[in-house]
Amino acid sequence: MSQNKNEAKDRAAKSRVGDARYVAHVGVIAAAYAVCTLVAMMFLGSLAWGPIQFRVSEALCVLALFTPAAVPGLTLGCVIANVANIAISGTGMLGMLDVVFGSLATFAGALFTWKMRRRPLVALAGPVLANALIVPAYLPLLLQGIGFYTIPFTSISLDGAYPLMYAFGLVTTGLGEAVIMYVLGYPLSRSLAKTPFVKRELAQLGTTK
């Protein structure tokens, strides 16, 4: 009986350590994504959040290949970055569209990546598809609300041409995300996979949660 109690205590202790590690990873990933996104917004402007976008922080979605902590971590980081962008870009309450639906796209893409992690090239299509399908649905409303009357870098009017705007955003957002995920993200994932710390910590966490 005493041995069973000791074993139960050991399991409980290991569980608490595992939970603490998981929470720590969520926090680190969220901070990394938020910081990278805000830096990109400051230096790239609308290229980090507009209809033609290259949000380089999206490359961090490859972390979902290694740990389930990346799913809430990336989502939380996206929420933080998009809330901060409301102040930076002056979008006001319209910016909440990006906070809610942009973060939903990040969540869906990261979850797909984690679920398909055994097939990395397929898994990285998750963020591409999620952003391509979700972001163009609300972005024209956001752009028009902050004073854009044509799609940036084009002569396409934002007034009364929603199907065309959505199709344009689907292609451009999807292509931009694909470049980030496969040109930056995939090599990053290959490098991370060779890192002893990542192999030991993230892989172990991923198999125990």
Rank of each mutant, 00 (worst) to 15 (best):
A161D: 11
P187H: 03
M93L: 13
G90T: 07
V39G: 14
G206P: 05
L124M: 05
A32K: 14
I134D: 06
A31G: 04
L202P: 09
G145H: 02
D19M: 09
V62M: 01
A31M: 03
I134L: 06
W49Y: 10
M96K: 06
G147K: 07
E201I: 15
N4R: 10
M41W: 06
K209L: 11
M116Q: 01
Q3A: 10
L47R: 03
V26Y: 01
V99F: 00
A108T: 08
L76C: 03
K9A: 15
A12G: 10
R117Y: 01
L38R: 15
V100I: 07
L142M: 06
P187T: 11
S89L: 12
L129G: 00
G169C: 03
L38S: 15
P120E: 12
L188E: 03
I146R: 11
Y149M: 08
L184Y: 14
T208V: 10
A193Q: 14
L139M: 14
T106I: 03
F43H: 08
Q53C: 06
S46P: 07
I88K: 06
M181L: 11
V198H: 14
I146L: 12
A123S: 13
P196W: 10
L202T: 13
I180R: 08
V122I: 13
A105M: 03
A32G: 02
C36T: 15
R16E: 12
Y22E: 08
I80C: 07
V79N: 00
G147L: 04
Y186D: 09
L129I: 02
A108F: 05
Q3C: 12
T37M: 05
S57V: 05
G126Y: 00
R117Q: 08
A32I: 11
Y166G: 15
F197C: 11
L124D: 00
G95F: 04
L188I: 11
L192W: 10
N4Q: 15
I80G: 00
A125G: 06
Y166T: 15
L164K: 09
V99K: 02
A84P: 04
L129K: 00
V62C: 02
V100Y: 01
G73K: 04
T173N: 06
S46H: 12
A193W: 02
P163I: 15
D98A: 09
F153H: 12
G169D: 10
L60W: 01
S155N: 08
L188D: 12
K199D: 14
A70I: 09
N85P: 04
G169R: 04
L94M: 15
M93K: 14
L184D: 06
N6V: 14
E7F: 15
T106Q: 03
L74A: 13
P68I: 05
V28D: 01
L143T: 02
G147F: 00
V71L: 01
G160A: 07
